[in-house]
Write a protein that binds this DNA or RNA. Structure first.
Lengths: 196, 196
DNA sequence: AGGCACATGTAAAAGGTTACATGATTGG
DNA sequence: CCAATCATGTAACCTTTTACATGTGCCT
């Protein structure tokens, strides 16, 4: 039941609709907790029932009405309790690595395509994160930001996301090179013991 | 339904019991796919029913009997199909980062403890991975291993795990320092505009 | 005309966690 | 003597994914 704590942390920034949160928790944006809109709408209802958040309806004319949620004092207390409580280990589930683990020489072309795709995704995510970082720093140095700003949490988690995607790219490039070298080596007449 | 493909990849190494696999998929060992023993026993049954793996019972005297599972030709085909199929994005769920994101100055001591704990886990995991790497290389250079050995998948995924834990340590140490500096700065009389 | 952004949901199915259950052997 | 390792499962519960459902406004 940690999705609710991720939502509470997100609401520290201010009011948000389910739709707003869905964007933040989207797989292509979130770097440490993801959730689908369906999960969020249901969880927001439960959290409202439990008094952790409060909702107000904003009527809009050219758009559907929306419910804006904000954290309550009880919600803040729940978040503090969560932070002090024991932490579960990180869950990583990466289909791509299952493919790498299980690949055979015959799978080389498919695996190369998977790695190229991964590099593309990681680069796109990294670019987004870097833009976000620039916006947060707003001209200040990292040193200055870390000592001056009130909440450094979002900046620190962003740094973790940036490091993760950089490592992704570095590793995928290395693996791609290794696999390609084997493919060309296997075909290269120079490597044959007995020339044809 | 990707657990089954992770199991198939694991069985490329040779026969394994549910218990053997449970050790490999344990949270403290696995670096890209985890599963509890309960999940595995159930999935192994289904996979046997689907003909992806075959089981044989080994009777033991001083231990409970065990069922050793091996991949079938149909299982190999399923794994190849999985590798060629589209890949789902990586799922990361890290409670610790939720805590970092949602922390307030009052949570500093708890957050520091969480970071210290994480560094300890990451170091333990890293040590295990490094030992595993040494064993795999068996004296050869990485270059030599990558061009000579038949299956490089497990080595490449291991490298990803090593990089992940190294990044974990580096980032956690950085964050810990940042948080501690703020704490001491807040208490340090030198920083006061008006000395007491 | 077609697609994306906004905005909210329901329902069924699949997947994952936690608690319970058993019992011998080995090592410190 | 206590803890860990070996070895397998059942059952209840909770979480997550996927498919379905609706409708307006804006931009190209």
């Amino acid at each position: 039941m940690a999705l609710r704590h991720a939502v509470l942390a997100a609401l520290l920034d201010g009011e948000a609709s389910g739709y707003d949160l869905a964007k933040q928790f989207d797989a292509s944006v979130a770097n440490f907790w993801m959730a689908t809109p369906q999960q969020l709408y249901k969880e927001l209802e439960r959290m409202t029932a439990d008094g952790l958040i409060a909702a107000r309806v904003v009527e809009q004319e050219k758009r559907p009405n929306k419910r804006l949620h904000s954290i309550t004092e009880s919600g803040r207390a729940a978040l503090r309790a969560f932070i002090a409580d024991s932490t579960k280990p990180t869950v990583i589930r990466d289909e791509m690595l299952v493919k790498i683990q299980g690949m055979d020489s015959g799978d080389a072309p498919a695996v190369e395509a998977v790695l190229v795709e991964r590099i593309g995704w990681a680069e796109a995510k990294l670019a987004r994160y870097e833009r976000s970082r620039t916006r947060m720093l707003a001209g200040r140095s990292e040193q200055a930001y870390l000592s001056e700003s009130v909440h450094i949490g979002p900046y620190l988690t962003l740094l973790r996301g940036i490091a993760f995607e950089q490592e992704n790219i570095r590793w995928a490039q290395f693996s791609l090179d290794a696999i390609r070298r084997r493919r060309t080596a296997a075909l290269d007449p120079v490597d044959r013991l007995v020339p044809p």
